[in-house]
């Protein structure tokens, strides 16, 4: 991959000043997403995955702010943009899909109006052309009888259909990058499968770069090309999905995989990761995962965990595992 990545995040750090001290929900994150690629960002609640997405698209709620690092969209820095310039960029070049389709649509406008409004604002087309494109966008995301449904209000759609409308809205101005924050969490299994298939198809057909933020390892496995595992604001592991999921190098990733009940494992006792994710205000010294880590050594408890750059670029760990080798040895 020699071309410029659509999204390039470099050493991104977000801080929230509070009266108890400065919290760092995103700490030194770096990753690239290329055109036509789905990048999964996975982690448990409080890992900072949503905050990373919001920082990229410029939707941080004050007092949270980017204190260092940069966000490059096809090579141009966008993290310093404010006001109108940011608004134009959002929608035109970056689309966003939220978890709750209920709240991301305006209940008082028809879906057609919302779509044409977005198209008119970002693309230089006539009113009629915008309407045509709105219908096409609805057809593309698989809404049956799009021509008739374009005059409907959001509440007239079911949950899954509404999420399709949100996806159409995020894609109608033909952005290069789409950030999907838990897009299927509020949906049922059967609808979730439809939405994942839709996202994959759109990504492939239109060459959009997708940042898929989720807590669900299964969704990541099915949808993503590469995955970033986050823990307590930091990148724990980064790599191709199959590699990371089958041969986890970071003990946290390995623990996550083993603690998920698998149909193939049957009734055997689940592996536990003791404790819970620390609160941002009370991070342990050393590597943030060290108190829960089975493999922690003195160095882990004393020195902060390494950044990805400082080790093999795969797992941010002083003593990365080799799960596959271990399995082989066992066999």
């Amino acid at each position: 991959m020699t071309d410029t990545p659509v999204l390039s995040v470099r050493d991104l750090t977000v801080e929230i000043p509070t009266r108890h001290g400065v919290l760092r929900p995103v700490d030194d994150m770096s990753f690239d997403i290329h055109a036509g690629e789905i990048m999964g960002v996975v982690g448990e609640s409080g890992a900072g995955k949503s905050m990373t997405g919001n920082a990229v698209i410029g939707l941080l709620d004050p007092p949270a702010r980017i204190v260092s690092g940069e966000v490059l969209l096809s090579g141009t820095p966008v993290h310093k943009l404010k006001g109108d310039a940011l608004r134009r960029l959002r929608g035109k070049r970056m689309g966003m899909i939220f978890q709750d389709p209920q709240t991301s649509l305006n209940p008082l406008l028809t879906v057609g109006d919302q779509l044409s409004e977005t198209i008119l604002e970002h693309l230089n087309v006539t009113q009629q052309e915008a309407r045509k494109r709105a219908i096409a966008a609805l057809e593309e995301v698989g809404i049956p009888a799009a021509r008739q449904r374009i005059g409907s209000y959001p509440h007239e759609f079911s949950g899954g259909m509404r999420q399709r409308v949100v996806i159409a809205l995020a894609l109608c101005a033909e952005p290069d990058l789409v950030i999907a924050d838990e897009p299927t969490t509020a949906l049922d299994v059967s609808v979730q499968a439809q939405i994942i298939a839709l996202l994959k198809r759109l990504c492939r057909d239109r060459g959009v770069a997708v940042m898929l933020v989720t807590h669900d390892m299964g969704v990541i496995a099915e949808a993503a090309d590469r995955v970033a595992v986050m823990y307590a604001g930091r990148m724990a592991e980064l790599g191709p999905v199959r590699e990371v999921l089958t041969n986890a190098r970071h003990p946290y990733t390995a623990g996550l995989m083993e603690s998920t009940p698998l149909a193939s494992q049957g009734r055997k006792r689940l592996r536990q990761i003791p404790g819970a994710m620390p609160r941002l205000g009370a991070l342990p010294g050393g590597c943030a995962f060290s108190p829960r880590c089975d493999y922690a050594q003195d160095r882990c408890r004393q020195e902060p965990g390494p950044t990805l750059k400082r080790c093999d670029g795969r797992a941010a760990c002083w003593f990365p595992l080799n799960t596959a080798a271990k399995e082989e040895a066992k066999a």
């Binding site: 299964g218 496995a221 099915e222 698998l262």
Partner: peptide, 13 residues
């Protein structure tokens, strides 16, 4: 149901 071992699975939803 999403499966952890179904990498890039392409099935008809």
């Amino acid at each position: 149901a999403p499966r952890m071992d179904a990498f890039g699975r392409e099935v008809e939803p």
